[in-house]
Design a protein around this nucleic acid. Structure first.
Lengths: 136, 136
DNA sequence: TTTTACCCTACTAAATCTATAGGGTATTAG
DNA sequence: CTAATACCCTATAGATTTAGTAGGGTAAAA
């Protein structure tokens, strides 16, 4: 299941991507428009800033804005920053790989096998979908 | 992320599907072979019995056994019983649908849109993979 | 210089996960 | 018959994660 953090984060990014001018949007504006707790959204936007998706401007007329063209932001990067691994088990994760404690051999593991397939098909979708595509 | 319950459940089902004879297999045997806590496995197998996947035999020489041919058990049904919804958000779930509290309109929701795609591709894999396929 | 709006830390209630504990009961081998 | 086997069932609990809340600090601009 997708965490609220990820869901809200995507919604906020889409909100920003939909702006015609690239002028900063305030947290309060987004939280109101997308029905998100303002303080919670604040922490999400902050992490999106730290990971290089957003820029910010302080003071009056300030807010957050996208640093890149929405067409250049694939959903893989968004998902990995907000949600973490895309795979359903760590042993098939590309960016968050971990060996399973209980599993003696990944190559003969039935779970590994099918989850690898699922990861590939999901990854394909996220790779071929940009933030811009979500705005249509 | 896949819960241990689901992971262990699949491993146990595969273990049973690999049996040549359909004689019952004891919990202890499975827990030892698959490195799963026996008591935890017990509760998982019990739930698989209640949902119609397994039969059991008490007393000496007893254990659990599959009720159907592994070729007739698609992973969709396994996943739904063990893990719950296949979709990443309730609003795109077929069997566990729930409306999002924050979202005014699903049809224009960006998250809904992409998660629907992911659900479809994942579902397709689970539908076309049976327990038997995992034994190869 | 005051207001605005981002920045940061710490904490917490609730839920879920991953078991463990401790026994009860039906079945069957001998 | 009876004793061992192995499933059946309930309750509980520690750990982790989630989804926030509280409370203030700081930089920038009007």
């Amino acid at each position: 299941m997708l965490s609220k953090k990820t869901k809200y984060g995507i919604k906020a990014l889409v909100h920003l991507a939909k702006q015609e001018e690239s002028s900063p949007v305030q947290i309060g504006t987004i939280s109101l428009a997308e029905n998100i707790s303002q303080k919670f959204l604040e922490s999400i936007l902050l992490s999106l800033k730290k990971t290089g998706f957003l820029g910010s401007k302080k003071g009056k007329g300030g807010g957050y804005y996208l640093l890149k063209d929405p067409k250049d932001i694939p959903m893989t990067t968004v998902m990995r920053v907000l949600e973490g691994p895309i795979a359903m088990v760590p042993c098939v994760s590309l960016n968050f790989y971990e060996k399973c404690a209980d599993c003696p051999d990944e190559n003969t593991c039935a779970v590994n096998k099918i989850m690898l397939e699922v990861r590939d098909s999901t990854l394909k979708i996220f790779k071929n979908t940009t933030l811009h595509d979500l705005c249509l």
